[in-house]
Design a binder for these strands. Structure first.
Length: 578
RNA sequence: GGGCGUGUAGCAUAGUCUGGAUAAUGCACCGGCCUCCUAAGCCGGGGACCGUGGGUUCGAAUCCUGCCGCGCCCGCCA
């Protein structure tokens, strides 16, 4: 209830000064109440006892008496157990929530100073299947892209696909063995696992094939035209497949966001020369490296970041630095976000540190590894595509849509085929995305079909359902008398709903600031829950008093828009019927 | 061995940054609610020594620290 703090702080300040209590002493004591029955805000007075040499109970009473007159109209003040409790009045709530309801952004303001933010996310590998593990980066990155855009920042989506490196030798040779048309077909229908595994299998077992593969890598690196053509076939068929998954998932990523590893390949020599010019490059074990410091290997010796391998080749650290240079210098990015799994945290620490040492990243840049935990199998171990237990992302999505179809059929049989399919898609995809987004991204989680595909409880279908119910109310409204009608909070349930709407901005900003979509998820659930309670207890259309009816309609409208916007920021549809 | 992270009802999680009163939510479980605006819902109930031992504090799930469990990382894969 930040708005209430803003509203009451002048009165509190004045009251405190008449009591001679310093703001340094009480400023940090005011916060949201932990016991909602007692009020919206609370101030624990126990730490003031030492300063004032009085009991907390007496102090709370004194403060209560001193600030009560100043908060008249805003809030009721009481004291209990050494706490000052401040509870918003219905009239204040009514005014504020009417204000928020009048705002198309529901009180969420844009950033004062917009920044240019490059977000690196999704990053599947060419000729490799997308498994549930890819869901996290794709869905979290996409939500952050939407959230930061909504704040008015310039967001540059970067899909850093794995389209370069030694595996391409074997992939291209396998492509040749199969024949271009055949291989292209296999990839474009999404049978990437078998393609990759066959190539891998031949590489491991057939020494002749392995030799051809190694030779092919050399040809690729040297820019041989035929080889590049074959490589391009793999990349094109794969990206076509990725796009199908992205469309199904309903994420923002399009071809223009593709910036694969290969795109940075020509820049790698300059990374070496720039680090060398900065005096950072050292020779170690035949490789060119930089020691960022602070990291040790198993023997307790400084751990280097390898820039150029002993054989003259480059690896991912070099590409990542080239990437940073490109994003800073060509795209003028202020912030660099990498939605990549936690296991790579050391890598990013080292890369960022080297870039700061080299002056490539300055004080004005924010570079952040937006890490996320691993998806675990029921055995508690990380799901690996090779273990066989990994679930294909498309299979998960299709299963979710098919379950949603069954539920929609059952709950709302009157819908037409097209609308039903559209709703099932929104519900099914939303459920999968929300189950991922609503968890703290930094924690691992155990993959669980039934939980991921659940449509009850704390899920996106619950949010979508609340939204659809409100839309249904408005299909029965024929007048527009309610549109500019002031909201009048009288009832307990109205108050709870109004409070959740007023806290929307806080939650959104916390979510955006810490790049934690789960905070927004939690708040949308709170709004929904407040709404459904309200809806069960407060008749809207069937109430006789037009003032009550109109005010409640506006509350409904503001709730629907909060949910619709909130869901859209998570990349989830809000159908009007379901 | 070193580093990083993590541990909250049977299960899954929120809360931890910024310490406050009775630890919040969902699933599962028990009991109610559709002649009434969408029951994918609502109302009520049981269920937690917040991993564990210390410390700081008037006050600790939250801060510091020891230990235990688990996960990840520790030089030429990405």
């Amino acid at each position: 209830m930040d708005p209430l703090i803003q509203a009451t702080i002048p009165g509190i300040r004045q009251g405190m000064s008449t009591l001679g209590i310093e703001e340094d002493d009480w400023g940090s004591l005011l916060g949201p109440s932990t016991v909602s029955d007692h009020g919206d805000l609370a101030m624990a007075c126990h730490s003031l006892a030492r300063v004032l040499r009085k009991s907390p109970v007496d102090i709370a009473e004194d403060i209560c008496a001193a600030i009560t007159p100043n908060l008249k109209g805003f809030a009721q003040v009481t004291s209990m157990n050494g706490f000052v409790n401040i509870k918003a009045t219905n009239s204040w709530l009514s005014e504020r929530v009417t204000e928020v309801a009048s705002d198309s952004r529901l009180g969420i303001t844009k950033a004062e100073i917009p920044r240019t933010i490059a977000i690196d996310y999704s990053s599947p590998n060419v000729a490799k299947e997308m498994h549930v593990g890819h869901l996290r980066s794709t869905v979290i990155g996409d939500a952050l892209a939407r959230i930061l855009s909504y704040q008015g920042h310039t967001v540059i989506r970067e899909n850093h696909i794995g389209d370069w490196g030694t595996p391409f030798g074997m992939l291209i040779e396998h492509l040749l063995d199969l024949g271009e048309a055949e291989a292209g077909g296999e990839i474009s229908v999404g049978d990437l696992d078998s393609f990759y595994k066959s190539a891998r299998g031949k590489f491991d077992e057939d020494s002749d094939f392995a030799a051809r593969s190694r030779a092919r890598v050399v040809l690729l690196q040297s820019g041989d035209e035929d080889t590049l053509h074959l490589w391009k076939v793999l990349v094109n068929e794969s990206t076509r497949y990725f796009n199908e998954v992205y469309r199904l998932l309903d994420v923002l990523l399009v071809d223009a966001d593709l910036m694969g590893e290969s795109a940075y390949h020509p820049l790698l020599p300059s990374v070496v020369s720039r680090l060398s010019d900065a005096g950072l490059l050292e020779e170690s074990g035949g490789a060119d490296v930089v020691f960022p410091g602070g990291h040790l290997n198993r023997e307790g010796e400084p751990l280097p970041l390898i820039i150029r391998k002993g054989d003259g080749g480059y690896n991912y650290a070099t590409t990542d630095i080239a990437c940073i240079i490109d994003r800073i210098e060509r795209l003028n990015a202020d912030d660099l976000l990498y939605v990549v799994g936690t296991p790579q945290s050391r890598h990013f620490e080292m890369v960022f540190e080297v870039c700061r040492m080299a002056g490539l990243l300055g004080a004005g840049h924010r570079s952040e590894h937006v890490n996320f935990g691993s998806v675990l199998g029921s055995d508690g171990k990380v799901l690996k595509s090779r273990s066989g237990s990994a679930v294909k992302l498309v299979d998960l999505l299709e299963e979710s849509i098919s379950r949603a179809t069954a539920v929609v059929d059952e709950k709302n049989p009157g819908l037409g085929e097209d609308e039903k399919n559209q709703i099932a898609r929104s519900v099914g995809i939303g459920a999968v995305k929300f189950s991922d987004l609503s968890n703290d991204r930094t924690r691992d989680y155990v993959f669980d079909w039934s939980k991921m595909l659940s449509f009850e409880g704390d899920t996106s279908p619950y949010l979508q359902y609340a939204h659809a119910r409100i839309c249904s109310i408005f299909t029965k409204v024929e007048d527009s008398n309610w549109v500019d009608y002031p909201i009048n909070i009288n009832d307990h349930y109205e108050g709870r709903l109004a409070r959740s709407l007023l806290s929307y901005r806080d939650s959104f900003e916390s979510s955006a600031r810490d790049l934690m979509p789960n905070r927004l998820c939690t708040h949308l659930l709170a709004i929904s829950s407040a709404f459904t309670s309200f809806y069960e207890n407060c008749p809207v259309l069937i109430v006789e008093d037009p003032e009550v009816r109109n005010g409640r309609l506006r509350l409904c409208d503001a709730t629907a828009r909060s949910l619709k916007i909130g869901l859209s920021l998570l990349g989830i549809d809000a159908p009007e019927r379901m």
